[in-house]
Amino acid sequence: MMLDFFDLYNYWVVIFLMMAGFYTLIAYDNLIKKIIGLNIFQSAVFMLYISVGKVSGGSEPIAADNIELYSNPLPHVLILTAIVVGVATTALGLALTIRIKEAYGTINENDIVQMNRDAEAEKAQEWGRE
């Protein structure tokens, strides 16, 4: 039983990272921290892909003589693409954060939501009940 647990340690790492990312997303109001949480969350999935591509005892997937067993290269290739996507997402998220800071003067999401709500309340007040 214990052995099983350690055999599958890569999954536990993945699950831990994922939950950490999730927790960060839920618990922190700072937009930058949210993006970091998102990155941790994505990394967990990247790890999953990379770890399952490893064939125990297998070599790097480079064609060479006298090597019979290769690790599976496909997940690595896939995850390269996914990392690119992740980087793009992060970049966009950071860019949005900059613009939000310019527009709202804060990067605390709770404050931003409150400002949005206040703006609407104000408009409703102004127009009266119709």
């Binding site: 709770n110 409703a124 007040q125």
Partner: peptide, 16 residues
């Protein structure tokens, strides 16, 4: 809210 049901929620709430 005063102008109808709220549409702005913190994303933490959504993720929850």
């Amino acid at each position: 809210g005063p102008s109808g049901p709220r549409i702005h929620w913190p994303s933490g709430f959504m993720v929850l």
